[in-house]
């Protein structure tokens, strides 16, 4: 029992060490600037500029979070403060189901519904043409994928706010909305931020759904209607040839390492904040 428990902790460090070990060759061969600040990705010429991929990942993630957060906040406030029990009993299982849908299904749905939406309506509305496979498309699909995690964490955070604190505000004649706005959201701020960061890191590491809809063109996207090529897509698309070109596998492992470290840090910080909130209540 004890051994297995230590193993499960060690897994975190094993992954880190494994990825670092595999990334060392490329870090030795190529300069830092050539890896992170170069846009040239030509494995055959030993050029591994990761910048377009990093920017694409950040861009898609930010679009997803910008779409998702307001909707999730409003939904979570509604469910925790306004909705009656029957609504909650109806909505919660559906959100759980949404959480269970595999990313390839989101990807397919993105191709069926969102790609045409962007191509036929959104792009023309902004006076451009687009294939529909864009950063925005990826962002929309991702935003829905991260609904469940953000809403779930937000609901848990709002649940920790004592009824008596709300009553304190209501009893001086504040309306429910004023109480939400001035007291609950302020009190819940660290938890809300954690929820957002958890959603963000989920979006950050999502692979298949994004890969299927963002176009996978190696360039630095400027407009949300440009295609992009996120890190996860880079790794997934090139696994086939990575063993046949020198340093290629190491470059992809480095890309995985970047994903891992960023998600690790985000998760660690937000989980710590959430734990502290829980502890304060208990």
């Amino acid at each position: 029992m004890k051994g297995l428990t230590y193993f499960s902790i060690a897994l975190l460090f094993l992954i880190l060490i494994g990825l670092i070990y595999k990334s060392v060759p490329i870090l030795k061969e190529t300069s830092f600037g050539n890896l992170f600040f170069s846009t040239e990705w030509q494995p055959l010429k030993m050029k591994f500029g990761l910048l377009p991929f990093i920017i694409s990942t950040l861009y898609v993630t930010i679009v997803a979070v910008v779409i998702s957060v307001p909707l999730c906040l409003l939904t979570a406030i509604y469910l925790s403060e306004y909705a009656d029990k029957r609504v909650i009993a109806f909505v919660n299982p559906l959100i759980d189901i949404l959480a269970g849908i595999p990313s390839v299904i989101f990807g397919i749905w993105g191709i069926i519904e969102v790609v045409p939406l962007v191509r036929d309506y959104i792009a023309p509305a902004f006076g451009t043409t687009s294939s529909g496979y864009t950063i925005l498309t990826g962002g929309i699909v991702l935003s829905i994928m991260i609904f469940p995690i953000i809403i779930h964490v937000l609901l848990e955070v709002f649940e920790t706010i004592p009824e008596d604190l709300k009553n304190a505000s209501l009893s001086v004649g504040a309306t429910k909305w004023q109480t939400v706005k001035l007291v609950i959201l302020r009190k819940a701020a660290p938890g809300v931020i954690s929820a957002i960061v958890l959603g963000l890191s989920r979006a950050f590491g999502e692979t298949l759904a994004v890969l299927m809809v963002v176009g996978n063109v190696i360039m630095i996207p400027i407009s949300p209607l440009d295609p992009g090529y996120p890190i996860t897509a880079l790794i997934a698309n090139n696994y086939g040839e990575m063993m046949s070109i020198p340093l290629y596998d190491s470059a992809l492992m480095l890309a995985s390492l970047i994903l891992f470290v960023i998600v690790l840090v985000f998760n660690f910080i937000s989980r710590r904040i959430l734990k502290n909130i829980e502890r304060k209540i208990a």
Binding site: D164, N167, A168, T175
Partner: peptide
């Protein structure tokens, strides 16, 4: 309800200062 609550100050079992 707002007017009614305004007429009544409440002290609860434990003090709940607002987060400000």
């Amino acid at each position: 309800v707002i007017k009614i609550r305004k007429k009544m100050g409440l002290l609860s079992q434990r003090p709940y200062p607002l987060p400000m």
